[in-house]
Simulated assay, not measured.
Amino acid sequence: MSGKLKVHVDQDKCQGHARCKALAPELFDLDEYGNAHEVGDGTVPAGLEDKAWLARSNCPEVAIDVTEE
């Protein structure tokens, strides 16, 4: 893996299940409605790549994108 990973939550798809927040609280936060969004600009710190992929694979709405820069 060469580049850094970034996570992004599609706000149109997110239904507030908050599994991403439960699995990777370092990468996701919840708004006042319980919908998830990425922390900061979505950059995944070194060592948390597995959590990014885990959150993506556990999202029931498939609302999380993981991209490599």
Rank of each mutant, 00 (worst) to 15 (best):
S2L: 08
L30S: 08
M1F: 12
K6T: 11
L30E: 11
C20G: 11
A52L: 06
D65M: 04
P45C: 01
G16C: 10
A36Q: 04
P60M: 05
D65T: 15
G40V: 01
A18Y: 05
L48C: 02
G34Y: 06
D50A: 08
H37R: 13
H37E: 02
A46K: 08
S2Y: 10
V66C: 12
Q15P: 01
D29Y: 10
D12N: 14
D31E: 07
A18R: 11
V44I: 02
A63M: 05
M1S: 12
D41M: 03
A52V: 10
H8G: 04
V9D: 02
E32H: 07
G40T: 04
L23Y: 09
V39H: 11
L54S: 01
L23K: 07
N58H: 15
D41G: 06
A36R: 04
E61K: 11
L54R: 10
K51W: 02
K6C: 09
A36E: 06
T43L: 13
G40W: 12
C59T: 00
L48T: 02
C14F: 06
K51Q: 14
S2Q: 13
V66W: 14
M1P: 15
H17L: 07
P45E: 13
V9Y: 01
R56F: 10
D31I: 11
Y33D: 14
A46V: 07
H17E: 06
E38I: 05
L5Y: 15
P45T: 05
A22C: 07
D41N: 11
H8Q: 09
E26T: 07
A22T: 10
A63H: 07
L27K: 07
V62F: 15
H8N: 12
V9L: 03
P60R: 04
C14M: 03
E69T: 04
F28M: 03
N35S: 07
S57R: 14
N35G: 05
V44R: 03
D41A: 06
P25M: 02
P25N: 00
G47V: 03
A63C: 08
D29K: 14
